[in-house]
Design a protein around this nucleic acid. Structure first.
Lengths: 242, 242
DNA sequence: CGAGTGATTGACTGGTGTCAAACCCTGTGG
DNA sequence: CCACAGGGTTTGACACCAGTCAATCACTCG
């Protein structure tokens, strides 16, 4: 699968693109870049001139506080545009790094702007992706602010699994999620120890397991019930198989 | 000031619009609606056909959990588009209500889409607003997940004050913020009691005060230092073209 | 084999949430 | 004019959850 296939597949999942729209998308310059685990693609404070799309692997956005503490903001799978915001906001207010090894393609902003001027439908499709992004942020606010650890971690697992499934990254009941427990804590506003203990609870409930950087969902109904998970905020088109 | 003045002033704050762009914006249909304190403008699950812009007062977005607990997601001042997301996402994944009395104008989606097709610069300006919105969500994730109560509440006060100032809503050192302490707790993921005690600390430090639905900032430097506040994420001004 | 990374567990403590009472203020109605 | 109700704020008491510290274990890799 070429990188423009990944892009078009993702956009077509949510929006209607005509032949000429897709043809224009295919003509975009696409600089492939491979990232090593943890490597930054772009950093807080940078002034990007190109926008990245995930082709393979997982990327994450994060803030760094004065204290050095890292807060992960979102996780991105192939087809996602983790820095579409750079298109219209000059300076990055957060960083983007690879989780595990990853491949991205970088498209120059001026080409995208030209595409958007000439093919509004393509602009609307990408805009839509950025709005789903925002919707995920809102759910993260609610998850990290309102839910107790057990529901919070379960909800997060549900989202990862659901989105991985949409991106075709689930084999049987397992997906790769190459994070350690400390990083999960930094995503959910929990301490490492708390993540570990909560994970133990989830294991005991036999709803899911997480080890060696892989998430295994054994009982989707149970996990989504514990996590109070309703995928409406992902504005999905494909429902995962239960 | 007419409602299209409010819109144009806000868009011009962040983007460059030409005469024809602004003329087209002025021709948009604009249904004025007045909201009573706490009234919902649109609810989770709705399928909106129009998009609201705040003209006067304050609006807020929120989630409601299974338990009935409410989580406020964002606060919106005149010029903001609190449900621009409805433009490209069919179903609302959250609700929007008035904080205090408020006036909004509702513009039909089809008119906005037509505007965006014909005047890409207008589309980019509104798109940019939605991206700033997302940036604020990210900061909220970090604030509610990583900061301890004192810094968290202070940071929130800073953001409210800074954005109110941008919107011209600060008189001397005071802004109207017609929320009670329980609601602030629902915004910050804190209990009412915790908000109250943290507020006492901020008062003692003489950085700011909050009472009778008004925020008074007595020492901005001190407050933003306690709150670890850096307004970069609000993307406050137009950056020079590269 | 030792170093290093990550997971797990125990012990401890301090911060937050919960519960409940008292207080303040305003508006209302007898 | 006073009594009362109601919303919001403030305070105290208390329990317990979750963070911190630290030790141990499991596993990989040079």
């Amino acid at each position: 699968m070429t990188s423009s296939d990944v892009v078009i597949k993702k956009l077509a999942q949510h929006s209607e693109l005509t032949g000429p729209d897709m043809a224009h998308v295919r003509r975009l310059t696409c600089a492939i870049r491979k990232l090593t685990p943890g490597e930054d693609f772009i950093k807080q404070g940078d002034f990007p001139r190109a926008s990245a799309i995930v082709i393979e692997g997982i990327l994450a956005r994060y803030h760094v506080l004065e204290t050095g503490h890292r807060q992960y903001l979102s996780i991105h799978f192939p087809g996602d545009w983790p820095d579409a915001q750079g298109l219209f906001l000059e300076q990055m207010d957060h960083s983007v790094c690879a989780i595990g090894t990853a491949v991205v393609c970088a498209i120059p902003h001026e080409e995208l702007i030209r595409l958007f001027r000439e093919r509004p439908a393509a602009a609307f499709a990408v805009w839509r992706e950025t709005l789903i992004d925002a919707s995920i942020f809102r759910e993260t606010i609610t998850n990290n602010s309102s839910r107790k650890p057990l529901a919070r971690l379960s909800h997060w697992f549900c989202e990862m699994y659901f989105r991985a499934k949409q991106a075709g990254l689930v084999r049987r009941d397992t997906m790769a999620l190459p994070l350690n427990q400390a990083q999960i804590g930094e995503a959910l506003g929990m301490s490492l120890v708390s993540v570990n203990r909560t994970l133990k609870q989830i294991r005991r409930s036999a709803a899911a397991d997480f080890k060696d950087g892989a998430l295994i969902v054994k009982n989707w109904m149970k996990l989504s019930s514990i996590g109070e998970f309703d995928p409406a905020y992902l504005h999905p088109t494909i429902q995962p198989r239960r």
